[in-house]
């Protein structure tokens, strides 16, 4: 019993290569390819109003949102299945579920369709502590669980899931820093990611919510610059006044709580010993003694 290869509770193994907890959900080459493909589809799903060429099949404001609202759930399911196949043990599942519950409990603190910044605060820190794969799945699972809890399942949900998944994965991809610099980096990232997320979601329902007989509306097949200008005007009059204070608040929250929360997450990750291969050895003295 004494020579167990599993580190004991609360004590990091002395041979740990780095202080950083290794990624809990390793992204293999196949998962990476699937992730990149789905992200490319996601870029089209968010950005088609700006990208569609005149005369293309997508340049109708009515059909494209419906197409993507049905297509994205399937693609998210495929990529999540691929990530899960790479190895999702009970510890990862439990950690995902509990952190998603915390996120869903934080969600009502923010308001509005795009107002999920209190969630981002947790998402950014967890994605940082546990790596991009975990951050991606956590983002999708948190928003899904929150929608189920508040009975808010709608066509916006796949877009929110993909956006939050990107935010979580991006936090895991940030360069390695330690101490105050890390927290400052994460705070800046949280603010920028929150703003970008708000913009992307605005873009996803912009052709939908403003009629085409208005000067801040999407004009199908117009040049990129003209549509972009109109989109910025739309954002300016609708949501920018809420988005900026919320981004600042998220950054302040990360600055205030980043260090202790990161420490708590990393400690839990070490205690769960995600990377330790479990091996059983026969006791050296022949037959085991009875207790």
């Amino acid at each position: 019993m004494s020579d167990a290869a599993i580190p004991t509770d609360g004590v990091a193994p002395a041979t740990s290569p780095a202080l950083r907890t290794r990624s809990q959900l390793r992204i293999g080459p196949r998962s990476l390819a699937a992730l990149l493909l789905v992200s490319a589809v996601g870029v089209i799903a968010f950005g088609w109003p700006l990208l569609a060429q005149p005369g293309s099949g997508l340049a109708h404001a009515t059909d494209a949102p419906l197409l993507f609202a049905l297509l994205l759930p399937l693609l998210l399911a495929v990529v999540l299945a691929q990530l899960a196949e790479g190895g999702m043990d009970a510890k990862t599942v439990a950690m995902l579920g509990v952190l998603a519950a915390v996120g869903a409990a934080l969600r009502p603190l923010g308001t509005g369709v795009a107002g999920v910044e209190p969630v981002f605060f947790l998402l950014v820190l967890a994605g940082r502590a546990y790596g991009p794969g975990f951050g991606f799945v956590l983002g999708a699972v948190t928003l899904f669980a929150s929608a189920l809890l508040t009975a808010g399942v709608g066509p916006w949900l796949p877009f929110q899931m993909l956006g939050a998944a990107w935010v979580g994965a991006g936090a895991g991809l940030l360069p390695e820093l330690r101490g105050r610099a890390e927290v400052a980096l994460l705070a800046a990232y949280a603010a920028v990611a929150g703003l970008a997320y708000g913009l992307a979601l605005n873009l996803s329902f912009w052709p939908f919510v403003i009629g085409n007989a208005s000067t801040i509306a999407f004009v199908a097949g117009d040049p990129l610059v003209d549509n972009l200008g109109r989109f910025l005007a739309f954002t300016l009059v609708t949501s920018l006044g809420f988005d900026i204070p919320r981004a600042v608040l998220t950054a302040i929250l990360v600055l205030l709580t980043g260090r202790p929360i990161l420490r708590a997450l990393r400690r839990a990750g070490r205690r769960a010993a995600f990377d330790t291969p479990v091996s059983f050895q026969a006791p050296p003295g022949g037959a085991p003694r009875s207790p």
Partner: peptide
């Protein structure tokens, strides 16, 4: 195929009230 992710969502749903 989404068994693990589904379990994570179930855990989240049952943990949120206790949070």
């Amino acid at each position: 195929a989404l068994y693990e992710v589904g379990v994570a969502v179930v855990v989240a749903l049952s943990f949120a009230p206790s949070m």
